Computed example of a mutant assay.
Amino acid sequence: MKQGTTLFLKIAVILIGIPVLALCIFLVPKIGNFAGELYPDMTYMKSLIFIVMYGAALPFYFALYQAFNLLRYIDGSKAFSELSVKALKNIKYCAITISGLYVLASPLFHFIAKKMDPPIGLVGLIIIFASLVIAVFAAVLQKLLKEAIDIKSENDLTV
């Protein structure tokens, strides 16, 4: 594969991470403060928001790192290797973790959305669905890559 194609994808991976970092720095504290103001008698509400959102950011950035590694393997002609399969497996687990966190936190978000004028409860569902789609896609790619590696190793042994 040409270096320019993977360079574009590497830049895209970096550009995906920048807005999420900005959201973590600027928006998550505001959401936590807002939730704390909605329910002043529940002092743990702000902490729960921080745990869920920052907790989901960690596997997100690990998945981006794994995607970047996968692109490096493609550049180094190691696309059909166990390293690539492992990177896809890690991406799958990260997506499942993010989805699981938001599934566990969906009652919390529903609780907050009940007090808001335009309810935004669907945002959590969108994140859950997108993470599950990424997990399934990574699992399918992982399986295909593993089968291709097995076929390649069989062909190497017969020749």
Rank of each mutant, 00 (worst) to 15 (best):
S106Q: 03
A57V: 01
Y39T: 00
I98L: 10
I120N: 03
V133F: 15
I151Y: 14
L27G: 08
A139F: 12
I25F: 08
F34W: 08
Q142H: 13
D41M: 04
L64Y: 07
E154V: 10
L101N: 05
V85L: 08
D75T: 01
F50T: 15
T6S: 09
N69I: 02
D117K: 08
Q142W: 12
L125Y: 11
Y54M: 05
D75E: 03
N90D: 13
I112L: 00
A35P: 08
K30C: 08
M116Y: 07
V20T: 09
T97A: 12
A67Q: 04
D150C: 12
L83V: 07
E154N: 14
K152E: 15
I126H: 04
V52L: 08
K115C: 00
M53R: 10
L83T: 09
M53K: 07
P59F: 02
L122Y: 12
T5C: 12
S47Q: 02
I151V: 12
L27K: 13
S77R: 06
M1Y: 09
Y44C: 03
I18C: 06
S77M: 05
L125R: 14
G121M: 03
T43Y: 13
P59C: 00
A130Y: 13
F8L: 10
D156L: 14
Y44V: 09
K78I: 06
A67L: 14
L48V: 05
L132P: 13
Y54T: 00
K152P: 08
I120Q: 12
L144V: 12
T97R: 07
S47A: 04
L108T: 01
G100A: 02
V20I: 06
I134H: 06
K86G: 04
F68H: 05
S106H: 00
I98G: 14
A95V: 03
A148F: 15
K146V: 05
S81N: 02
P59H: 00
G121L: 01
V28R: 05
L21W: 11
P119W: 01
D41Q: 14
L145E: 09
A113E: 01
L58D: 09
D156R: 15
L27T: 15
V13K: 02
A22P: 08
V140N: 10
F60A: 07
A67P: 11
G121D: 05
I49Q: 06
I151P: 10
K78P: 09
L27V: 14
S131C: 06
K115S: 05
F129P: 07
F111C: 01
L83Q: 10
E154Q: 14
L27F: 11
L64K: 03
K146C: 11
E147N: 15
Q142L: 13
I128F: 03
A138T: 09
P40F: 00
A35H: 04
A35N: 01
F26C: 06
S106R: 00
C24F: 04
V20P: 10
A148P: 08
K10W: 06
L15H: 04
E82I: 10
F80C: 09
F68P: 04
D75K: 03
K114V: 00
F129K: 14
K89F: 15
Y73W: 13
K46N: 06
G36T: 05
M116R: 05
G76E: 11
L108D: 01
L108W: 02
D41H: 09
A79W: 02
L108R: 00
I128R: 02
P59I: 01
G17W: 02
A56L: 09
F8I: 11
L132K: 15
